[in-house]
Design a protein around this nucleic acid. Structure first.
Lengths: 172, 172
DNA sequence: TCACCCATGTAAGGCGTTACATGATTGC
DNA sequence: GCAATCATGTAACGCCTTACATGGGTGA
């Protein structure tokens, strides 16, 4: 999976969620929940906002103290196209979910379904690795840390899958 | 937290675990479990190994087909110093744990204890955020994705904390 | 013989960080 | 008055990725 550029979409998402934001406000946003999944410093944010305005994804509004950015129609469709893109292994699930505000938004189910498939694969893969690598007690004792993180990863996937299935049921 | 350079320590850890590895073998290692927590391409690995040899962390051994690297005493102490460093918020818990082979290694308990403290803080912080941001039904319905990832994050921390506590008990 | 894996290397470029800068406003 | 926060910007630099290169071995 080629490394894709994420920051502009994150900015779109944030601005879309809040209506309008200044560069400074965006940098503050990263101190809250979004910061768990993405971060950017102001030295990235300001030039990026300018570029996105040039591209017609944003417009701005200056009150003399701050420049606030608002999302355009083009920006909105760009954001939704990005949210609809298939999830790779790039761990964008939580980040994208953060930007979906309405429970009935079809993108919500779309995202959960994709993530479920990915995690079921991962789970199967990890279980197979466990069997392959730790086929007896000696292997476990000689690589205990490895054993721990593998069993932990399996547990984590299991919980995540259960949560996804639960929430998918809840959407119907 | 200043971004620190991790790759050399990962290479030390891998070589220490396996006894000796070639650059190519290391790049293959990243396709397995370590790859969950760290990755490097061969264009990084080869020069880095050369640098580490210059620094006296590794020695090499050539069989005509491949160059194998072995860890030196200095390399071992460097690795252990890195493993003992306090965990920041840089998510190195699983990676470091992978490199600890012996259940009775004091670093094992050290790591688990640190991670537990970090996650208890995170858990408390997330619960407070939930109360602050989602104080009524309207907030939830208007930002459902945000609500989902926040409650999910809380669940995840809870499970992780329980697992850590369990394993810490098991070590005694 | 042709594709694929083994095996190692250099070069260009992008993303993101820290550091360097500047100035206004607000609270103690 | 002085520190902290608001607010925005540029510059240097490092890590990592992709792309470019090269060559030997092996199985269909």
């Amino acid at each position: 999976m080629p490394k894709r550029r994420i920051l502009p979409y994150v900015l779109l998402g944030l601005i879309n969620n809040k209506g309008k934001l200044s560069g400074y406000q965006i940098s503050q946003e990263f101190k809250n929940e979004v910061g768990e999944f993405w971060h950017a410093s102001h030295s990235q944010i300001y030039p990026e906002l300018a570029r996105m305005k040039t591209d017609g994804w944003l417009t701005d509004e200056d009150d003399g103290k701050s420049t606030y950015y608002l999302i355009t129609k083009l920006g909105q469709s760009t954001l939704r196209a990005w949210l609809a893109e298939p999830l790779n292994d790039d761990n964008l699930f939580s980040l994208k979910l953060y930007f979906i505000r309405d429970q009935k938004d079809p993108l919500m189910e779309h995202l959960l379904t994709q993530e479920l498939a990915i995690n079921q694969d991962k789970y199967a893969h990890l279980k197979k690795r466990l069997e392959t690598v730790f086929f007896n007690e000696a292997q476990i004792n000689e690589n205990y840390g490895h054993y721990l993180i593998l069993t932990r990863a399996i547990e984590r996937e299991k919980n995540h899958i259960a949560w996804l299935q639960n929430n998918l049921k809840g959407l119907v």
